[in-house]
Protein backbone atom coordinates (compact mmCIF):
# COMPACT_ATOMS: atom_id res chain seq x y z
CA UNK A 1 0.00 0.00 0.00
CA UNK A 2 1.12 3.51 -0.80
CA UNK A 3 -0.20 6.76 0.61
CA UNK A 4 -1.18 8.81 -2.44
CA UNK A 5 -3.18 11.90 -3.30
CA UNK A 6 -6.09 11.39 -5.69
CA UNK A 7 -4.04 13.17 -8.37
CA UNK A 8 -1.24 10.62 -7.99
CA UNK A 9 -3.71 7.76 -7.76
CA UNK A 10 -5.35 8.67 -11.08
CA UNK A 11 -1.89 9.12 -12.56
CA UNK A 12 -0.99 5.60 -11.41
CA UNK A 13 -4.25 4.23 -12.82
CA UNK A 14 -3.62 5.91 -16.18
CA UNK A 15 -0.12 4.48 -16.24
CA UNK A 16 -1.45 1.00 -15.55
CA UNK A 17 -4.02 1.31 -18.34
CA UNK A 18 -1.40 2.55 -20.81
CA UNK A 19 1.01 -0.25 -19.94
CA UNK A 20 -1.68 -2.83 -20.45
CA UNK A 21 -3.02 -1.61 -23.79
CA UNK A 22 -0.89 0.16 -26.42
CA UNK A 23 -4.07 1.51 -28.02
CA UNK A 24 -4.76 3.69 -24.98
CA UNK A 25 -3.71 7.25 -25.67
CA UNK A 26 -4.20 10.45 -23.71
CA UNK A 27 -5.35 13.61 -25.45
CA UNK A 28 -6.04 17.02 -23.98
CA UNK A 29 -4.89 20.56 -23.42
CA UNK A 30 -1.55 20.98 -21.63
CA UNK A 31 -1.45 17.33 -20.55
CA UNK A 32 1.91 16.44 -22.07
CA UNK A 33 4.80 18.73 -21.37
CA UNK A 34 3.05 20.41 -18.45
CA UNK A 35 1.42 17.24 -17.10
CA UNK A 36 -2.01 18.91 -16.97
CA UNK A 37 -3.03 21.97 -14.99
CA UNK A 38 -3.67 19.66 -12.02
CA UNK A 39 -0.64 17.47 -12.90
CA UNK A 40 -2.81 14.37 -13.24
CA UNK A 41 -0.83 13.27 -16.31
CA UNK A 42 2.52 14.32 -14.89
CA UNK A 43 5.43 12.37 -16.38
CA UNK A 44 3.33 10.24 -18.71
CA UNK A 45 4.43 11.93 -21.92
CA UNK A 46 8.04 11.53 -20.89
CA UNK A 47 7.54 7.81 -20.28
CA UNK A 48 5.13 6.91 -23.09
CA UNK A 49 6.06 9.42 -25.79
CA UNK A 50 4.32 12.12 -27.75
CA UNK A 51 2.17 9.71 -29.73
CA UNK A 52 0.59 8.29 -26.57
CA UNK A 53 0.21 11.52 -24.62
CA UNK A 54 -0.80 14.28 -26.99
CA UNK A 55 -1.05 17.96 -26.34
CA UNK A 56 -4.16 19.10 -28.20
CA UNK A 57 -4.94 22.41 -29.84
CA UNK A 58 -7.18 24.52 -27.61
CA UNK A 59 -10.56 23.35 -28.91
CA UNK A 60 -12.78 20.98 -26.95
CA UNK A 61 -15.05 19.99 -29.81
CA UNK A 62 -11.94 19.20 -31.81
CA UNK A 63 -10.59 17.02 -29.03
CA UNK A 64 -13.81 15.03 -28.69
CA UNK A 65 -14.54 14.91 -32.42
CA UNK A 66 -11.10 13.64 -33.36
CA UNK A 67 -11.38 11.06 -30.56
CA UNK A 68 -14.40 9.62 -32.39
CA UNK A 69 -12.21 9.11 -35.46
CA UNK A 70 -9.40 7.66 -33.35
CA UNK A 71 -11.88 5.19 -31.86
CA UNK A 72 -13.04 4.25 -35.37
CA UNK A 73 -9.40 3.52 -36.15
CA UNK A 74 -9.16 1.19 -33.14
CA UNK A 75 -7.73 3.51 -30.51
CA UNK A 76 -8.97 3.91 -26.96
CA UNK A 77 -8.70 7.66 -26.32
CA UNK A 78 -8.68 9.10 -22.82
CA UNK A 79 -9.50 12.79 -23.03
CA UNK A 80 -8.93 15.50 -20.50
CA UNK A 81 -11.26 18.48 -20.44
CA UNK A 82 -9.34 21.04 -18.44
CA UNK A 83 -12.26 22.24 -16.31
CA UNK A 84 -15.97 21.41 -15.95
CA UNK A 85 -17.06 24.76 -17.39
CA UNK A 86 -15.05 24.17 -20.57
CA UNK A 87 -16.78 20.97 -21.63
CA UNK A 88 -19.67 22.72 -23.34
CA UNK A 89 -17.88 23.46 -26.64
CA UNK A 90 -17.44 19.69 -26.87
CA UNK A 91 -20.98 18.90 -25.75
CA UNK A 92 -22.36 18.45 -29.26
CA UNK A 93 -19.74 15.88 -30.19
CA UNK A 94 -20.27 14.05 -26.89
CA UNK A 95 -24.07 13.96 -27.07
CA UNK A 96 -24.66 13.63 -30.82
CA UNK A 97 -21.66 11.53 -31.79
CA UNK A 98 -19.86 9.77 -28.94
CA UNK A 99 -23.07 8.75 -27.16
CA UNK A 100 -24.99 7.64 -30.25
CA UNK A 101 -22.42 6.09 -32.55
CA UNK A 102 -22.64 2.53 -31.30
CA UNK A 103 -26.45 2.46 -31.54
CA UNK A 104 -26.41 4.25 -34.89
CA UNK A 105 -24.09 1.62 -36.31
CA UNK A 106 -26.05 -1.31 -34.88
CA UNK A 107 -23.08 -2.18 -32.72
CA UNK A 108 -20.55 -2.29 -35.55
CA UNK A 109 -18.47 0.58 -34.13
CA UNK A 110 -17.61 0.91 -30.45
CA UNK A 111 -16.74 4.20 -28.78
CA UNK A 112 -14.37 3.20 -25.96
CA UNK A 113 -13.66 6.83 -25.09
CA UNK A 114 -13.06 8.09 -21.55
CA UNK A 115 -13.61 11.80 -20.97
CA UNK A 116 -12.02 12.99 -17.75
CA UNK A 117 -13.49 16.19 -16.32
CA UNK A 118 -12.30 17.81 -13.08
CA UNK A 119 -15.53 19.12 -11.53
CA UNK A 120 -17.11 20.81 -8.56
CA UNK A 121 -16.31 23.79 -6.38
CA UNK A 122 -14.73 24.53 -3.07
CA UNK A 123 -11.33 25.62 -4.35
CA UNK A 124 -11.94 29.37 -4.53
CA UNK A 125 -11.77 29.42 -8.31
CA UNK A 126 -13.02 31.97 -10.83
CA UNK A 127 -16.19 31.51 -12.86
CA UNK A 128 -16.48 28.36 -15.06
CA UNK A 129 -14.02 26.46 -12.85
CA UNK A 130 -16.36 25.10 -10.17
CA UNK A 131 -19.33 23.58 -11.96
CA UNK A 132 -21.06 20.24 -11.56
CA UNK A 133 -22.57 19.39 -14.96
CA UNK A 134 -23.01 15.66 -14.35
CA UNK A 135 -26.79 15.63 -14.82
CA UNK A 136 -26.50 16.58 -18.50
CA UNK A 137 -24.38 13.52 -19.12
CA UNK A 138 -26.26 11.16 -16.82
CA UNK A 139 -29.39 12.10 -18.80
CA UNK A 140 -27.80 11.21 -22.13
CA UNK A 141 -28.45 7.71 -23.42
CA UNK A 142 -25.31 5.96 -24.59
CA UNK A 143 -23.02 7.50 -21.98
CA UNK A 144 -21.87 6.09 -18.68
CA UNK A 145 -20.88 8.40 -15.84
CA UNK A 146 -18.43 7.57 -13.07
CA UNK A 147 -17.03 9.67 -10.27
CA UNK A 148 -14.49 8.54 -7.67
CA UNK A 149 -14.48 9.86 -4.13
CA UNK A 150 -11.07 8.82 -2.76
CA UNK A 151 -7.62 7.83 -4.05
CA UNK A 152 -8.23 4.08 -4.00
CA UNK A 153 -11.56 4.28 -5.85
CA UNK A 154 -10.00 6.72 -8.31
CA UNK A 155 -7.07 4.39 -8.97
CA UNK A 156 -9.40 1.50 -9.78
CA UNK A 157 -12.28 3.23 -11.55
CA UNK A 158 -10.10 5.18 -13.98
CA UNK A 159 -8.71 1.87 -15.20
CA UNK A 160 -12.19 0.38 -15.44
CA UNK A 161 -13.51 3.42 -17.30
CA UNK A 162 -10.72 3.05 -19.87
CA UNK A 163 -11.28 -0.68 -20.27
CA UNK A 164 -15.03 -0.22 -20.73
CA UNK A 165 -16.10 -0.47 -24.37
CA UNK A 166 -18.73 2.22 -23.86
CA UNK A 167 -18.00 5.94 -23.56
CA UNK A 168 -17.47 6.97 -19.93
CA UNK A 169 -17.65 10.52 -18.61
CA UNK A 170 -15.28 10.43 -15.67
CA UNK A 171 -15.84 13.27 -13.22
CA UNK A 172 -12.90 13.96 -10.92
CA UNK A 173 -13.78 15.88 -7.73
CA UNK A 174 -11.14 18.55 -7.90
CA UNK A 175 -11.47 19.70 -4.29
CA UNK A 176 -10.53 16.13 -3.27
CA UNK A 177 -7.56 15.95 -5.66
CA UNK A 178 -5.12 16.54 -2.84
CA UNK A 179 -6.75 14.27 -0.26
CA UNK A 180 -4.46 11.39 0.60
CA UNK A 181 -5.37 7.77 1.05
CA UNK A 182 -3.99 4.26 0.91
CA UNK A 183 -3.74 2.86 -2.61
CA UNK A 184 -2.79 -0.70 -3.43
CA UNK A 185 -0.82 -0.16 -6.63
CA UNK A 186 -0.11 -3.84 -6.96
CA UNK A 187 -3.79 -4.26 -7.84
CA UNK A 188 -4.83 -4.09 -11.41
CA UNK A 189 -8.52 -3.19 -11.62
CA UNK A 190 -9.06 -5.85 -14.26
CA UNK A 191 -7.87 -8.67 -12.04
CA UNK A 192 -10.27 -7.68 -9.28
CA UNK A 193 -13.40 -8.31 -11.34
CA UNK A 194 -16.62 -8.13 -9.36
CA UNK A 195 -14.75 -7.39 -6.12
CA UNK A 196 -14.42 -3.80 -7.29
CA UNK A 197 -17.33 -3.39 -9.69
CA UNK A 198 -17.33 0.31 -10.61
CA UNK A 199 -21.04 0.13 -11.46
CA UNK A 200 -21.98 -0.84 -7.92
CA UNK A 201 -22.56 1.73 -5.21
CA UNK A 202 -20.41 1.34 -2.08
CA UNK A 203 -21.64 1.53 1.47
CA UNK A 204 -18.73 3.50 2.87
CA UNK A 205 -20.21 3.74 6.36
CA UNK A 206 -22.93 1.50 7.70
CA UNK A 207 -25.78 3.02 9.73
CA UNK A 208 -29.37 2.37 10.69
CA UNK A 209 -31.46 5.58 10.75
CA UNK A 210 -30.91 7.50 7.51
CA UNK A 211 -29.36 6.53 4.19
CA UNK A 212 -27.26 9.35 2.77
CA UNK A 213 -26.62 8.91 -0.95
CA UNK A 214 -23.78 10.97 -2.28
CA UNK A 215 -20.92 10.87 -4.75
CA UNK A 216 -17.61 12.48 -5.66
CA UNK A 217 -16.68 15.45 -3.49
CA UNK A 218 -19.70 15.05 -1.18
CA UNK A 219 -18.68 11.60 0.08
CA UNK A 220 -16.09 13.03 2.43
CA UNK A 221 -18.56 15.72 3.55
CA UNK A 222 -21.18 13.10 4.33
CA UNK A 223 -18.69 10.86 6.13
CA UNK A 224 -17.73 13.81 8.29
CA UNK A 225 -21.40 14.47 9.01
CA UNK A 226 -21.90 10.81 9.94
CA UNK A 227 -18.92 10.94 12.27
CA UNK A 228 -20.29 13.85 14.29
CA UNK A 229 -23.95 12.81 14.23
CA UNK A 230 -24.26 11.39 17.71
CA UNK A 231 -28.03 10.92 17.91
CA UNK A 232 -28.67 9.76 14.38
CA UNK A 233 -27.00 6.79 12.72
CA UNK A 234 -26.22 7.67 9.10
CA UNK A 235 -25.50 5.08 6.42
CA UNK A 236 -23.33 6.71 3.76
CA UNK A 237 -23.63 5.31 0.24
CA UNK A 238 -21.06 6.39 -2.35
CA UNK A 239 -22.96 5.97 -5.62
CA UNK A 240 -19.75 6.01 -7.69
CA UNK A 241 -21.72 5.44 -10.92
CA UNK A 242 -24.25 8.12 -11.86
CA UNK A 243 -25.22 6.37 -15.08
CA UNK A 244 -26.41 3.77 -14.57
CA UNK A 245 -27.14 4.25 -10.87
CA UNK A 246 -26.97 1.07 -8.81
CA UNK A 247 -30.48 1.06 -7.36
CA UNK A 248 -30.10 -2.44 -6.01
CA UNK A 249 -27.68 -1.30 -3.32
CA UNK A 250 -29.55 1.93 -2.68
CA UNK A 251 -32.98 0.30 -2.39
CA UNK A 252 -31.62 -2.34 -0.01
CA UNK A 253 -30.16 0.40 2.17
CA UNK A 254 -33.36 2.47 2.22
CA UNK A 255 -35.37 -0.66 3.04
CA UNK A 256 -33.24 -0.94 6.17
CA UNK A 257 -33.26 2.73 7.18
CA UNK A 258 -36.61 3.94 5.77
CA UNK A 259 -35.16 7.36 5.14
CA UNK A 260 -33.08 8.84 2.33
CA UNK A 261 -31.16 12.07 1.94
CA UNK A 262 -29.43 12.70 -1.39
CA UNK A 263 -26.51 15.11 -1.42
CA UNK A 264 -24.82 16.77 -4.41
CA UNK A 265 -23.13 20.03 -5.27
CA UNK A 266 -24.99 20.41 -8.55
CA UNK A 267 -28.08 22.60 -8.65
CA UNK A 268 -31.20 21.07 -7.16
CA UNK A 269 -33.73 21.08 -9.97
CA UNK A 270 -33.42 18.36 -12.59
CA UNK A 271 -30.37 17.00 -10.83
CA UNK A 272 -29.28 13.44 -10.13
CA UNK A 273 -31.04 13.72 -6.75
CA UNK A 274 -34.39 14.32 -8.45
CA UNK A 275 -34.02 11.11 -10.43
CA UNK A 276 -33.06 9.17 -7.31
CA UNK A 277 -35.99 10.63 -5.35
CA UNK A 278 -38.43 9.54 -8.06
CA UNK A 279 -36.97 6.05 -8.21
CA UNK A 280 -36.86 5.48 -4.49
CA UNK A 281 -40.42 6.79 -4.25
CA UNK A 282 -41.46 4.06 -6.69
CA UNK A 283 -39.36 1.27 -5.20
CA UNK A 284 -39.64 1.98 -1.46
CA UNK A 285 -43.10 3.55 -1.15
CA UNK A 286 -44.14 1.32 1.71
CA UNK A 287 -40.85 1.47 3.58
CA UNK A 288 -40.33 5.24 3.55
CA UNK A 289 -40.98 7.08 6.82
CA UNK A 290 -40.20 10.50 5.34
CA UNK A 291 -40.03 12.11 1.91
CA UNK A 292 -36.75 11.65 0.08
CA UNK A 293 -34.92 14.87 0.84
CA UNK A 294 -32.26 16.58 -1.23
CA UNK A 295 -29.32 18.67 -0.14
CA UNK A 296 -27.90 20.39 -3.20
CA UNK A 297 -26.56 23.54 -4.74
CA UNK A 298 -29.13 26.23 -5.42
CA UNK A 299 -30.70 26.89 -8.82
CA UNK A 300 -28.31 29.72 -9.54
CA UNK A 301 -25.16 30.02 -11.63
CA UNK A 302 -22.21 29.01 -9.49
CA UNK A 303 -21.58 32.02 -7.26
CA UNK A 304 -18.42 34.07 -6.85
CA UNK A 305 -15.89 32.17 -4.77
CA UNK A 306 -16.08 34.31 -1.64
CA UNK A 307 -19.65 33.16 -1.06
CA UNK A 308 -19.37 29.63 -2.49
CA UNK A 309 -19.50 28.10 1.00
CA UNK A 310 -23.14 29.20 1.15
CA UNK A 311 -23.85 27.38 -2.11
CA UNK A 312 -22.04 24.14 -1.38
CA UNK A 313 -23.70 21.54 0.81
CA UNK A 314 -21.65 21.13 3.97
CA UNK A 315 -21.67 19.01 7.09
CA UNK A 316 -24.30 21.17 8.80
CA UNK A 317 -26.73 21.12 5.88
CA UNK A 318 -26.42 17.34 5.68
CA UNK A 319 -27.13 17.03 9.41
CA UNK A 320 -30.02 19.48 9.14
CA UNK A 321 -31.60 17.32 6.44
CA UNK A 322 -31.00 14.16 8.46
CA UNK A 323 -32.77 15.75 11.44
CA UNK A 324 -35.67 16.81 9.25
CA UNK A 325 -36.26 13.32 7.87
CA UNK A 326 -36.07 11.95 11.42
CA UNK A 327 -38.80 14.43 12.43
CA UNK A 328 -41.55 12.77 10.39
Amino acid sequence: MTNLTMVKAINAGLRKAMERDPKVLLFGEDIGRLGGVFRVTDGLQKDFGEHRVLDAPLAESGIVGTAVGLAMRGYRPVLEIQFDGFVYPGFDQIVSQVAKFHRRMDGAVAMPITIRIPYGGGIGAVEHHSESPEAYFAHTAGLRVLTPSDPQSAYLTIQQAITCNDPVIYFEPKRRYWDKGEVDESQSALDLGAVADPWRARIVKAGSDVTVACYGPMVRTCLEAAAVATDISLEVVDLQALAPIDYETLVASVQRTSRLVVVHEAALSGGVGAEIAARIGEKCFYELEAPVTRVAGFDVPYPASRIEEHFLPDLNRVLDAAERVMGY
Partner: peptide, 28 residues
Protein backbone atom coordinates in the same frame (compact mmCIF):
# COMPACT_ATOMS: atom_id res chain seq x y z
CA UNK B 1 -20.82 -1.49 -41.29
CA UNK B 2 -18.24 1.29 -41.80
CA UNK B 3 -15.27 -1.05 -41.55
CA UNK B 4 -16.66 -3.25 -44.32
CA UNK B 5 -16.82 -0.44 -46.89
CA UNK B 6 -14.26 1.84 -45.31
CA UNK B 7 -16.95 4.46 -45.35
CA UNK B 8 -18.59 6.14 -42.38
CA UNK B 9 -22.33 6.66 -41.95
CA UNK B 10 -24.35 9.47 -43.47
CA UNK B 11 -23.56 12.30 -41.09
CA UNK B 12 -26.48 14.63 -40.46
CA UNK B 13 -25.05 17.17 -37.99
CA UNK B 14 -23.31 19.59 -40.35
CA UNK B 15 -19.54 19.32 -40.16
CA UNK B 16 -19.32 16.82 -37.28
CA UNK B 17 -17.85 14.05 -39.44
CA UNK B 18 -14.98 16.25 -40.60
CA UNK B 19 -13.43 16.01 -37.14
CA UNK B 20 -13.98 12.26 -37.19
CA UNK B 21 -12.03 12.06 -40.42
CA UNK B 22 -9.15 14.03 -38.95
CA UNK B 23 -9.08 11.82 -35.85
CA UNK B 24 -9.09 8.73 -38.03
CA UNK B 25 -6.22 10.17 -40.05
CA UNK B 26 -4.28 10.87 -36.85
CA UNK B 27 -4.76 7.21 -35.97
CA UNK B 28 -3.43 6.19 -39.38
Amino acid sequence: DPSLHRCGPYSIVIGAQVLHGVGYAMGV
